[in-house]
Simulated scan of single mutants.
Amino acid sequence: MSDSSKILVVLTSHGKLGNTGKPTGWYLPELAHPYSVLTRQGFSLTLASPAGGPAPLDPSSVEASANDTVSQSFLAEHKSLWESTTPLESFLGRAAEFAAVFFPGGHGPMFDLASDPTSQALIQEFASNGKVVAAVCHGPAALVGVKGPKGESFLKGKKVTGFSNAEEREVGLEQVVPFLLEDKLVEAVGKGGKYEKAAEKWGEKVVVDGKLITGQNPASAKGVAEEIVKAVWGA
């Protein structure tokens, strides 16, 4: 039975930042702010990850959010959510139970969700069931390898955004990530689609194309959640 108040959130299981020796994972405000928006609107969130169990939280995102009261409150009150995620495979065949699937960013998704066949199958299922598919920052990496019903790119002809090349260069990781997300998104949407970004680096940018909702960077996380609400409730 469909439940229009349930959202599946998919976090990365990858905690190592390439060959740098540094940790990575998912990015705190990109879950904290959507959680705040969505739960206030009556949604319940179920957290999953490829491996299940603890999903690695990028410690740099905790430091960067030191003065962000929403993120710090979430960190203090909801640790059990990401310390006990459900294995992603257990949600295959269950898209009808949810209103949306949402992929927060952080660099982790670039290393696992971008090529995870279970994640790709899940996105296909949600899309074919007319559900909302949403992602923010590096979260859209999960979308780039997904195929549509005819074997074409799921993103072909669509409008989309995600972490820009300029932003990746500014954080100094353009040689560390397995690919540049902006480049992959441009390739995936093809000539009939469009990758969009904010006029300035780190500016808020949310792009809505039907039931596909994407945000460019951490500043866009709250806006993505607000668009999820609109898409589900038909506002």
Rank of each mutant, 00 (worst) to 15 (best):
E227G: 03
P104I: 09
G148R: 09
F74C: 06
G18S: 13
L8N: 02
L45D: 00
F102A: 01
T86V: 15
E168I: 08
F103P: 01
G210V: 10
F111W: 15
A134Y: 00
Q120L: 09
E227Y: 05
P178Q: 11
A64N: 10
F98W: 11
G172M: 10
H138D: 00
V160N: 03
A127G: 07
G105N: 06
G139H: 01
G18V: 06
R169P: 00
M110E: 07
D183V: 05
E77Q: 15
E89H: 15
W233F: 15
A166R: 11
V189T: 09
I228Y: 06
N217I: 02
L8K: 02
K147I: 06
G21W: 08
K191T: 13
I228E: 07
A198F: 08
G106E: 06
P59S: 12
S44N: 10
S71I: 03
H78P: 06
V9D: 02
S65T: 05
G210C: 12
G215I: 03
S119W: 03
V232P: 04
A66K: 14
G53C: 14
G25D: 06
L155K: 04
G162W: 02
V9L: 09
T46V: 15
G145L: 10
F43E: 00
Q41L: 03
W202G: 05
K150S: 15
H107M: 12
G105I: 04
K156D: 07
P29S: 11
A64K: 12
L47A: 02
S36L: 04
K230Y: 07
V206Y: 03
G139D: 01
V189S: 02
V208S: 08
A76W: 08
G130H: 10
A142H: 05
E167I: 04
F111N: 01
V133F: 00
T85L: 00
S49L: 07
S80G: 13
L113S: 06
A66P: 02
T161H: 03
K79A: 15
S84E: 14
V132D: 00
D68P: 02
A221V: 05
I228N: 03
K79L: 09
T118K: 13
S71A: 14
N19M: 11
G130F: 08
S153P: 06
Y35D: 04
G215N: 04
W233L: 15
S115W: 09
G130D: 10
P87Y: 10
S115G: 12
V232I: 14
L181T: 04
K159E: 13
P104W: 05
A199H: 08
E125H: 09
S2V: 14
L122M: 12
G162D: 03
Q124E: 13
L113K: 05
V160P: 02
G42K: 09
G162I: 01
V224E: 02
L212R: 06
K22W: 10
P87W: 10
V177C: 04
P109N: 07
V232C: 09
A134R: 00
D112W: 10
A48G: 07
Q72P: 03
E196Q: 13
A219H: 05
G25H: 06
A96V: 15
L173K: 09
M110S: 11
H138Q: 02
N129D: 13
E167Q: 10
L45F: 03
F98I: 08
V224R: 01
L31F: 13
S115L: 10
P56L: 13
A135N: 00
S5P: 01
L11P: 01
S65Q: 03
L181N: 03
A95P: 11
G21F: 10
P54H: 12
K150Q: 15
